[in-house]
Design a protein around this nucleic acid. Structure first.
Length: 553
RNA sequence: UGCCUGAUAGUAUAAUGGUAGUACGACUGUUUUUGGUACAGUUUGUCUUGGUUCGAAUCCAGGUCGGGCAACCA
């Protein structure tokens, strides 16, 4: 007996349509405009559209909504395809609204023939003025009463390139007094003498979103066209076009887009961050883009899990970034290989240890013993983290302090005997002694210590660059913060540690796997990394119970 | 002073006229050679006022508050 998980409102609609026999199977679509990189908000839409089809045995098209040649580029098309694939989804067909330009043109001709569209010579200011305001109806201008024949001729002339940009538009003839602004004779075609990334210079007129999206849905026989809340006022127009054109009745449904704390999601803002060099490109690991998260080391599975957890509803929301981080840790804890790295070294001399090197075994992942063990060199001189020593320790501090004992992970228990200082009083190294009987796996010492530290053997340590990322913004709700969102950029969102000391295994490890640096966090090799110069990104830190405890004090 | 849309713990989300539940967070404790993990427990909620009903988060009416709509963007 499996516990039935409750359905979200769109799943309920789909099930009802399937049960009533309205559809035998469903067809959804993910319809990005190729004018930027996909972000985590798109991931929600992708998981919804593809997930629905997967759950109900339907299919999903990837359709590029490429009706504005000015902003769209092939680079974006490629990145979008890569991101969708990486997220783990396969589309039924790769399609483009621009595939349908001829058909959409004919749709407009049909509307003109029915007396339901006209060519307007007004400029944009006039059109805006005549449109009225939300509380005042618009007015009908003289172009509205042009004859069908005249409209047909003018539209053909527009297509033939006889007019300059902005000289004429085609408008649907609906209702200039409608309480819905989108129904006040919306523009459906405009002139743009611009090169299109797919159709080249074949067209100089392009359909507007409202005359391309629903039409494309209908041409493809999309059953459930799912979009975000801000398109609700467009739905009457979506339905109007389908009705007047007498084409396949795709239905539009709207859900609340994802908002996340400490980040921005709008393409405009992301583009600004890139162009003004607040970050290093679209895949800078601090960005909310899919490519950034991939580079940072977020597993695709974690992103899918996150999208599943946040649910689908119509209420506006602001999701904690920490929920995404939870999903990332949950996954990585089970898969990441444990390694030891010291970011800020403090030298320890184990005074009673012989002048030899010994090899110790350590498990690669205690959560998955099938990953086996590795051997780690150990000798008289090692490094530990500077933070793991305090000359005067507070209570409940389980690390190194004069007279205090700790376990070195997978090695021995050591006791801190003396802190050595230079002439300025700075601590330069620690002299410790080890308990020979306390070796990991064969401990007969009977000593129990509270703290276990990661360490690296000084003689065999390799150097690595570590990039630590923090949230990109200082405030939770960036989009709703007063003033310019860039004023809230966190100046410390990137911290580079250029000379960390790592255990030698990392030199030869598979660069595509995720690591957990013990007590530090999860890390992946960055694409900037080379054999000579290792570079790691911190994917996410570990939960730090001590930091919380210390803050309280 | 128009139209559309929404409101359930801190954040999300479920309960579809019949016990307000789940996840994350927070807090306790147990385990632990990662102050991690795992496990157990605790905490906090139906925007408001009326109405219908044996019974309302759910249905009805009014109010309050939030979001969207007046691009030749999508």
């Amino acid at each position: 007996m499996s516990e039935e998980k409750s359905l979200n409102f769109i799943e309920e609609i789909v099930e009802a349509d399937l049960n009533s026999g309205k559809y035998n199977s469903i067809l959804t679509r993910f319809p990005p405009e190729p004018n930027g990189y996909l972000h985590i908000g798109h991931a929600k839409s992708i998981c919804l559209n593809f997930g629905l089809a997967k759950k109900y045995g339907g299919r999903t098209n990837l359709r590029f909504d490429d009706t504005n040649p000015i902003t769209e580029e092939t680079e974006y098309v490629e990145s979008i395809k890569e991101d969708v694939k990486w997220l783990g989804f396969d589309w039924a067909e790769e399609l483009y609204a621009s595939n349908y330009f001829e058909q959409i043109y004919q749709f407009a001709v049909q509307l003109i023939e029915k007396g339901l569209a006209y060519v307007d010579d007004s400029n944009s200011e006039t059109i805006a003025l005549e449109k009225g305001t939300p509380t005042q109806p618009g007015i009908e201008n003289t172009f509205r009463s042009r004859t069908v024949a005249e409209n047909l001729q003018l539209f053909a002339d527009m297509r033939a390139g006889k007019f300059k940009d902005g000289e004429k538009v085609v408008r649907a003839k609906i209702d200039m007094a409608s309480p819905n602004m989108h129904m006040r004779d919306p523009i459906i075609y405009r002139i743009k003498h611009a090169h299109h990334h797919r159709t080249g210079d074949a067209w100089c007129i392009y359909p507007m979103y409202d005359f391309a999206h629903g039409q494309s849905d209908s041409i493809e026989n999309i059953t459930h066209s799912i979009c975000t809340l801000e398109f609700i006022p467009h739905r009457p127009l979506y339905d109007w076009c389908i009705e007047k054109l007498e084409i396949f009745p795709s239905k539009q449904y709207e859900f609340a887009r994802l908002n996340m704390t400490y980040t921005v999601m709008s393409k405009r803002k992301l583009l600004q961050l890139v162009n003004e060099n607040h970050v290093n490109g679209w895949d800078d690991p601090r960005m909310s883009t899919i490519s950034a998260m991939r580079r940072r080391g977020y597993p695709a599975e974690s992103i899918r899990e996150f999208c599943d957890k946040i649910g689908v509803a119509k209420r506006e929301n602001l999701i904690d970034l920490s929920l995404l981080e939870f999903c990332v840790r949950e996954r990585l804890n089970k898969t990441a290989l444990r390694r030891m790295v010291v970011f800020d070294p403090l030298k320890i001399v184990i005074t009673n240890y012989p002048d030899t090197t010994e090899y110790l075994e350590s498990e690669n992942n205690p959560e998955d013993l099938a990953t086996g063990t590795r051997s780690i060199p150990f000798s008289k001189v090692i490094f530990v983290e500077k933070d793991d020593f305090m000359e005067v320790a507070p209570k409940k501090y389980f690390r190194l302090s004069p007279g205090q004992m700790v376990r070195l992970k997978s090695a021995y228990i050591i006791k801190c005997d003396e802190a050595i200082k230079d002439s300025d009083g700075n601590i330069t190294e620690l002299h410790c002694s080890y308990i020979p009987e306390s070796k990991s796996g064969s401990d007969t010492s009977g000593i129990n210590v509270k703290g276990t530290l990661q360490w690296v053997n000084a003689a065999t340590a390799i150097k690595a660059e570590i990039r630590l990322y923090d949230r990109l913004f200082k405030v939770e709700d960036v989009a709703n913060a007063e003033g310019d969102f860039k004023d809230y950029i966190n100046p410390d969102s990137l911290q580079v540690i250029s000379n960390a000391y790592a255990e030698p295994a990392l030199q030869s490890d598979d660069p595509s796997v995720a690591f957990q640096f013990i007590r530090k966090g999860y890390f992946v090799i960055d694409r900037d990394s080379t054999n000579e110069h290792l570079v790691f990104n911190r994917t996410v830190s570990l939960k730090d119970g001590w930091a919380k405890e210390a803050k309280k004090a």
